[in-house]
Amino acid sequence: MAYQKVEVKKPLPLIVLPYISVIAFFGLWEMAVRTGFIPDTLLAAPSTVVQTFVDKLSNINPDGATLGQHAWTSIQEAFIGYGLSLLVGIPLGLFMGWFKVVEGLCRPIFELIRPIPPIAWIPLTVFWFGIGLTGKVFIIWIAGIVPCVINSWVGVRMTNPTLIQMARTYGASDWQIFKQLCIPSALPMVFGALQLALTYCWTNLVGAELLAADSGLGYLITMGGRVARPDIIVLGMICVGISGAIIGFIIDEIEKKLLAGIRR
């Protein structure tokens, strides 16, 4: 029998208020710029931003690439760095959680590197790899690896001790316990890391592009600042926000599909 859906009635104001608040926000923003309360050299009205958006889809001025190209550069960098950090970080975290030797060897270095904000690596990566793809991928990799390692480590550590004892009683080897018990029980935490790492990667991508880049959404924002076009800055910020939100949503859906049935 299918579950019966329980409908909770919300009072009318609670349904309407969110829409009102968003509309009021955009309305006030538009009004403030239109009436000159905030000069248009400081902030662009939403309508101007939409116009710029349509324009930038095909126009390469003033920063040398269309919006699509910028977005593509950013997404490419983000995904290569993100993929690499998952590839290295999750196994490393899992091993660190279970094998004492790995933990002893990797933890001090990890603790040393962890508090350095990834953006601080930018000058060094510029020295080492130039301002191309490699440098940014490196920064994003560093940014994404920290939550991956921590979450998979904690995930293994939080394995139910009773289960481990039981496996020991039945004569399972260390490796068997790790493979068949610790990894599955760490999975929800690991998936938590996917979201977290993505946020970190996306934030630091923007930072990397603000400082050292020749294309990408962060570069679009910088150029908007350099030519004093607030509409381009706001457009860049909104694009970064929206694309981050979309990628986050996709990962959330994948997570739901893969983790269906595992209690969180």
Binding site: F25, L210, M237, V240, G241
Partner: peptide, 18 residues
Amino acid sequence: KPLFDLFKPMPPIAWVTI
């Protein structure tokens, strides 16, 4: 909440320029 959700996905570093 809706306003907060609008601003949440925007990385703080993107605000540097503005």
